[in-house]
Nucleic acid binder design. Structure first.
Lengths: 144, 144
DNA sequence: TGTGTGTACTAACTAAAGGAAAGTTTGGGA
DNA sequence: TCCCAAACTTTCCTTTAGTTAGTACACACA
C-alpha cells in the first residue's frame, strides 16, 4: 500500500527520479520535503562523528589513528564508517600509501573545506554560548 | 560566577567529575574532548529531525500535528521525542491548552531562535550548494 | 444511534545503527 | 620467537530509530 504522505502542495508532474532538474525542483526550504536530496548531505555533515572529523581535518590533514586519538570517544568502526561516508560524498580525500605498516592520509576536498567551515561556525557558536544553554536547560527543568 | 574561557592548555589533575569547574576545563576547541558538555547540545541541535524542526519553528510556532505534516518523513514518536529533548534543553517552548481535542503549541525560546538561525544558515548553504555536492560525490565515485 | 475524524500522545515491538573488543595483514624491532 | 604498529574488518551485544496500534474526548455526518 502507498504509505507515503504525498505533498499536495507541489510536485505537479514529476516522476521523482529526474536528477537533472534538481536546480529547478529544489528551492529554499525544500529540506522539509522528504525527498529533498540535500537531506543526505545535511545528515552526513551533521552526523555525530562527522562534525568532529570535519573540525579536526580543518586544522590539518590527519592519519586514521591520529583522528582516532584526536576525536575523543569515537570507535574505530565508527570512524572508518564516517570517513567512508564523507569520502563517498566527495567531502574528504583519502590517500593511501602502500607501505607497511599502512599509512593513510585524510584531508578535506574544496567543497569539504567550505562545508567544514560552516559546520565549525555552528560548533564554535555553541561552545561560546554553552553557558547560556546550560542556563536555559536548568530553567526549563524548573518550569517543567 | 566566572564563566570565562581559559586559555590554559593543560589541566593536568582532574578527576573528570567536577561539574563546577567546567569553565576552567572547557575551552574553545574542546568539542573534540569526549567530556565536553557542548557535545550534547551540538548533538541535539544537529539531530536528524531536530534540524528540520528548528527550521520549521523559525517560520512560526506550530502545533504538533502541523509539524508532523510539515517535516516530511518524521514519525509521531520521533517528533515527540525530538521535541521533548529540545524542550529539556531549553530550546523550544511547549504550551499545552487543556481543550478537547488537545492543542499544544511549540515555539522557539530566545536561545533556541539564535541556535535555529545558525542551523538554518548551514542548511541553506547546503541547499544552495547541493549541485556542487552532487558533482563532488560523482567525482569521488569515478576516482574510487 | 452509530460510525468516522482529528488531536497529541504513549506502549509494544521490530529493524537498524552504534559501540566494545578481538581478528587481520605485513614487516620490523626486542 | 614473540610482539607491535597501522588501518581496517568482523563479531557480538546494546542502544536507538522506526512502525503500528491504541487511548480519551469532542464534534460532524447519516
Amino acid at each position: 500500500m502507498n504509505r507515503h504522505i504525498e505533498n499536495e502542495a507541489a510536485v505537479p508532474e514529476d516522476d521523482g527520479v529526474s536528477d537533472r532538474r534538481l536546480s529547478t525542483r529544489v528551492r529554499r526550504g525544500e529540506l522539509l520535503n522528504e525527498n529533498c536530496p540535500s537531506r543526505d548531505f545535511l545528515r552526513h555533515l551533521t552526523s555525530r562523528w562527522g562534525v568532529l572529523v570535519l573540525i579536526a581535518l580543518l586544522e590539518k590533514e590527519h592519519r586514521f589513528s591520529e583522528l582516532r586519538r584526536k576525536v575523543g570517544g569515537v570507535s574505530e568502526k565508527m570512524l572508518a564508517q564516517t570517513l567512508q561516508t564523507l569520502e563517498a560524498d566527495g567531502i574528504v580525500n583519502r590517500v593511501s600509501h602502500p607501505v607497511v605498516p599502512p599509512h593513510v592520509d585524510y584531508s578535506l576536498t574544496p567543497i569539504g573545506r567550505d562545508a567544514a567551515l560552516k559546520v565549525r561556525d555552528l560548533a564554535d557558536w555553541i561552545e561560546l554560548n554553552v553557558d547560556r544553554f546550560v542556563d536555559a536547560r536548568n530553567d526549563s527543568h524548573l518550569t517543567a
